[in-house]
Amino acid sequence: MSITKNEALAAATTAVGGAKPKKARKEQKGFFGLVRSVGPALAVALGIRAFLFEPFSIPSGSMLPTLQIGDYVVVSKFAYGVRIPFTNRMLFQAATPMRGDVIVFERPTVEPETLIKRVIGLPGETIAIVDGVLQVNGEAQPRDLLEKGYGFDDYDEHRRQWRGSSADLYVERLAEPDGSHRHFVMEQIRGLPSQGPWRVPEGHVLVLGDNRDNSADSRVFGFVPLGNIRGRADVVGFSWGKDGLRTDRIMRSLDAKVPEGA
Rank of each mutant, 00 (worst) to 15 (best):
residue 137 N to A: 04
residue 138 G to C: 05
residue 139 E to R: 14
residue 141 Q to R: 12
residue 141 Q to S: 00
residue 141 Q to D: 10
residue 141 Q to T: 13
residue 142 P to M: 04
residue 142 P to T: 10
residue 143 R to W: 05
residue 144 D to Q: 04
residue 144 D to N: 10
residue 145 L to N: 00
residue 148 K to C: 01
residue 148 K to P: 04
residue 149 G to V: 05
residue 149 G to I: 05
residue 151 G to D: 10
residue 151 G to I: 08
residue 151 G to M: 12
residue 151 G to S: 12
residue 151 G to N: 09
residue 152 F to T: 00
residue 152 F to L: 07
residue 152 F to H: 06
residue 152 F to I: 01
residue 153 D to F: 15
residue 155 Y to H: 10
residue 155 Y to S: 06
residue 155 Y to F: 10
residue 156 D to H: 13
residue 157 E to W: 12
residue 157 E to M: 13
residue 158 H to S: 14
residue 159 R to F: 12
residue 160 R to D: 09
residue 160 R to E: 15
residue 164 G to A: 04
residue 164 G to C: 04
residue 166 S to I: 01
residue 166 S to W: 03
residue 166 S to A: 07
residue 166 S to Y: 09
residue 168 D to F: 03
residue 168 D to K: 06
residue 170 Y to N: 03
residue 170 Y to C: 03
residue 171 V to K: 09
residue 174 L to F: 08
residue 174 L to C: 01
residue 175 A to Y: 12
residue 176 E to G: 14
residue 176 E to Q: 15
residue 176 E to M: 15
residue 176 E to C: 14
residue 176 E to T: 15
residue 177 P to N: 13
residue 178 D to M: 08
residue 178 D to Y: 13
residue 179 G to S: 11
residue 179 G to T: 03
residue 179 G to Q: 06
residue 181 H to N: 05
residue 181 H to A: 10
residue 182 R to P: 01
residue 182 R to A: 12
residue 183 H to R: 11
residue 183 H to F: 13
residue 183 H to M: 03
residue 183 H to E: 10
residue 184 F to M: 01
residue 185 V to G: 01
residue 185 V to P: 12
residue 185 V to Q: 03
residue 185 V to A: 03
residue 185 V to I: 14
residue 186 M to F: 01
residue 186 M to I: 06
residue 186 M to C: 05
residue 186 M to D: 06
residue 187 E to Y: 00
residue 187 E to V: 03
residue 189 I to K: 12
residue 190 R to G: 04
residue 191 G to Y: 00
residue 191 G to H: 10
residue 192 L to R: 06
residue 192 L to E: 02
residue 194 S to L: 02
residue 196 G to T: 08
residue 200 V to A: 09
residue 200 V to D: 01
residue 201 P to I: 02
residue 203 G to V: 09
residue 204 H to W: 00
residue 206 L to H: 02
residue 207 V to Q: 02
residue 207 V to D: 08
residue 208 L to R: 02
residue 209 G to Y: 13
residue 209 G to P: 02
residue 209 G to S: 06
residue 211 N to P: 09
residue 211 N to Q: 00
residue 211 N to Y: 08
residue 211 N to C: 02
residue 211 N to R: 04
residue 211 N to W: 06
residue 212 R to K: 08
residue 212 R to S: 03
residue 213 D to E: 14
residue 214 N to S: 15
residue 214 N to A: 13
residue 214 N to G: 14
residue 215 S to K: 10
residue 215 S to H: 14
residue 216 A to S: 00
residue 217 D to C: 03
residue 217 D to T: 05
residue 221 F to I: 00
residue 222 G to F: 04
residue 222 G to T: 02
residue 222 G to P: 10
residue 222 G to Q: 11
residue 223 F to T: 11
residue 223 F to V: 13
residue 223 F to M: 12
residue 224 V to D: 02
residue 224 V to A: 08
residue 225 P to W: 04
